[in-house]
Design a protein around this nucleic acid. Structure first.
Lengths: 252, 252
DNA sequence: ACGGACCTGTTAACGGCGTTAACAGTAAAC
DNA sequence: GTTTACTGTTAACGCCGTTAACAGGTCCGT
């Protein structure tokens, strides 16, 4: 965590242009333009080959930008969650999930980049970056909070398929697993199911493989969240959470 | 349905090269090559601009190929279903779903083309083609068969959000809705949920946003199908269907 | 303080892409 | 049999990622 020995004059500059590359890429993407080395370089007042001093290939740049977009998007999820009290993890999770959906629908290109890109493709550098979607990390944390408070039913380890046992024992995708006692790691399996539901609905909506009226109304998303509320031991609170979800969906 | 007036000599030839374009594209895709007009033309012994006599743009060709791939993939799902007796719609559905997963995992590029491409993008020609994934059509038919036989619970129309009511009354995505009486259209809502589950799990697996061990073992897919069996009124048959699912997953 | 190493940018060029325009031969239509 | 329409060609444009060769500036050790 220390600042390191000395952020030498040059390293500072280097880091700055590095960040500018990412920022420029995100700007291009945001205004609907195609992401190309020449476009990025052009906007930075630089020629394309110069970028190769900072990035080994176009694909590496895409991966980098994807990771950074995920980070930024996660911040917006965090902000959405933070509108609710810290001890109300259920509300925070719903808010975060709705924010995820809103972001995905309003930034389909970015969503595709981050979540619909074959990762672990070809000896992918920065695997640790990509494999751990920051957003997934955050969502997982919220769900674990809910579990700690409400102790909803989670599968015993020995009821799970061996592959799942191994996966929740030492997750490759780094998550806040360390805080969960070994015998309770079944909650991670619950989380994976929840994440699968969220991912499935949102991806279906973003790619338009669904009736537009259902997408626009958010009916499928609402239905999915409703089904999850009892499963997370939140049945007592359901009318409040349903109302809260409706508000979140109505948000622009 | 009639053969039309006369498939004139030229139209025949035209249709033939048209088909050859699609076939060549599929072949290229199958052997991992990039899909480009020049590559297609080259393999056909023709120059790239010639293809513009058959296709207005590269994107149109991609859409066309995607549709044709979906058609071909659906045939393999049909074949998988046909390994089970005609009156055993449950087995057929499970077989089809497992075949869908197998196909997706073994043809990730094609899967991405068909199911993870933003459709309805820009005044997309052939919208009727793309919006109706043939595979979805087929799966829907199987589920409707199950419903006709087992009459699993389906929501009443007036319990549904208005957007969903409209969507199941006259689906934009053409499905075998006509065979379902108006008051029972709630089964379509059930189908959409099932399709969402299948799509979500498989997409997550194909794009690798999941622990490799879980993907490889098919644990998440299995779990998802298990959760659906009781919801489709198949609880009586669950041990048989579970075994059947395991066999289908073990299939190469 | 000075010289060499290193870092960061340049220009020129290669091969590939989708796409267009202008043109040629050939099959169908009158 | 002539005209028309269709199907292919070649040449070229502008874009792309990527590499090589080269120029100037900064940092570092002596």
């Amino acid at each position: 965590m220390a600042a390191g020995p000395a952020p030498s004059r040059r390293e500072q500059q280097r880091r700055a242009t590095y960040d500018e590359i990412v920022a420029t890429s995100r700007a291009l993407l945001a205004e609907g333009a195609e992401l190309s080395l020449r476009a990025i370089a052009g906007r930075m007042g630089v020629t394309a080959p110069a970028l190769y001093r900072y990035v080994a290939s176009y694909q590496e740049l895409v991966d980098l930008v994807a990771f950074e977009i995920d980070r930024a998007a996660t911040e917006s999820f965090v902000a959405a969650a933070a509108r609710h009290p810290a001890d109300d993890a259920a509300a925070r999770l719903i808010a975060a999930a709705a924010a995820f959906r809103r972001w995905a629908l309003s930034h389909p290109r970015e969503f595709g980049l981050v979540f619909a890109n074959p990762i672990a493709d070809t000896a992918c550098t920065r695997r640790e970056l990509l494999t751990s979607a920051t957003s997934g990390h955050f969502m997982n944390g919220l769900l674990v909070e809910i579990w700690e408070r409400h102790r909803f039913p989670r599968p015993e380890l020995d009821e799970l398929p061996v592959a799942v046992q191994e996966a929740v024992r030492d997750p490759l995708i780094p998550m806040d697993a360390s805080v969960i006692p070994a015998e309770d790691r079944g909650v991670l399996w619950v989380f994976m199911h929840a994440w699968q539901s969220l991912y499935g609905v949102v991806t279906l909506e973003v790619f338009g493989h669904m009736d537009p009226r259902i997408i626009e109304s958010g009916a499928m998303f609402t239905s999915m969240v409703h089904q999850w509320i009892p499963r997370l031991g939140l049945a007592d609170d359901d009318v409040r959470l349903h109302r809260l979800l409706a508000e979140e969906i109505a948000r622009t």
